[in-house]
Design a protein around this nucleic acid. Structure first.
Lengths: 205, 205
DNA sequence: TTATCATTCCATCATTTGTTGGAATAAATT
DNA sequence: AATTTATTCCAACAAATGATGGAATGATAA
């Protein structure tokens, strides 16, 4: 059975999908409470009631957005895993950083929303399954930090969290950090990747 | 001339200071838009109008909170600088990580509010001077990554940002990350410090 | 063509939220 | 004691916000 989200993504030109795309962006910029349903409706150029017709409550739309970005990350991680399979660790790290950072710089709402969820309490506790724990364990296993995917030691999880967060930080923080460095966007992305490799390669090789 | 903020901090029992303390905590947990003036008033057990009497608009109170946490960070950085002065780099790093992480784990609102500001757009752009650029440059200089405090290269700034953010992440993300690891608070803090040292010592020594 | 269904908008509500005026009270000053 | 000043709360408001009913419109099926 196709979920409401899957249905929307089948046709990116559908109104439902357009709303979802706008919601991703705006929720990512302003957070849940900082976003109003009217802001999203305006971005799509529709009446607010049309938005409610397609997605129901604000919280439901937000959940759909979270599920959507999780799907994206999950797919990307699988894709990366395929590329790096069998290579030596240093090479794996370099490629993974390039790929993941590249992907997230193209979709900064993913980093924004992920960090939002880490750091913020919501007034009405939406307990969305965030998939992050599984992602983290999978990466730890893939990096050889755990023998068993289901039994990853705490220190390995902490290392992986550190890596992933570092990527998210550079992506989400671009608006704040880039002016500090005086770099243009392209150079900033390049420098971010270099910095990530600087820490990770020396740590793991 | 003592600013409104300084005046409040002179006497921590004053109503003005009590409101500020509660505001720090709640803004830190829920963000600017997620926090209502009524939530803060309730936490202090006062009427909402009393809050307005002391601090004026919500945005003004928020600014005071930001200035307050900046003061705290600034003082702590000076304190740390004194302790590590003259020691070899590896030792400096270890001590700095212990001290800063310890301080921030005691005052998680600082990390929360700092990251909030990095990653979030506010609907009404409050352009508070955030002092972060100076902090970053000072740390880069202190680590020997720049000859000149006023002329820090971009890659050095990126490295320092990476370090600082990594600390903030473990502090702010505790509620999300700790359940993933199964650690108690004390062990989590210890493990966070270890992980930070793992990446930084291997990178810089 | 007619009847059914899906989609969109207009108008409107009920709450929430930021904010203020003014009365009541307490504290300080004369 | 009388008077001013500072502090607190109650009540209320306007604007913003989440949400909905129902009419209009368009598409689809019969």
């Amino acid at each position: 059975m196709a979920s409401s989200l899957e249905k929307a993504k089948q046709n990116p030109d559908s109104m439902k999908a357009k709303i979802l795309t706008a919601a991703r962006k705006i929720f990512g910029e302003y957070g849940f409470h900082g976003t109003t349903t009217r802001m999203i409706a305006k971005a799509v150029n529709i009446d607010i009631s049309t938005l409610y017709y397609h997605w129901g409550e604000k919280g439901d739309l937000y959940e759909a957005v979270i599920r959507d970005i999780n799907d994206g990350m999950g797919q990307k991680l699988i894709e990366v895993e395929k590329i790096i399979k069998g290579r030596p660790l240093a090479e794996r790290l370099e490629i993974a950083i390039d790929e993941l950072a590249g992907y997230l710089f193209e979709h900064p709402e993913i980093s924004n929303l992920t960090l939002f969820r880490y750091f913020t309490k919501t007034r009405h506790g939406s307990l969305i399954d965030f998939k992050v724990p599984e992602f983290i364990s999978d990466i730890a296993y893939s990096m050889g930090l755990a023998k068993d995917r289901k039994n990853v030691p705490a220190d390995a999880k902490m290392k992986v969290l550190s890596i992933m967060n570092a990527i998210h930080n550079f992506v989400s923080g671009e608006n704040f950090f880039r002016p500090m460095t005086g770099l243009d966007r392209e150079s900033y992305i390049k420098e971010a990747k270099e910095t990530l490799k600087f820490f990770n390669l020396s740590a793991f090789t």
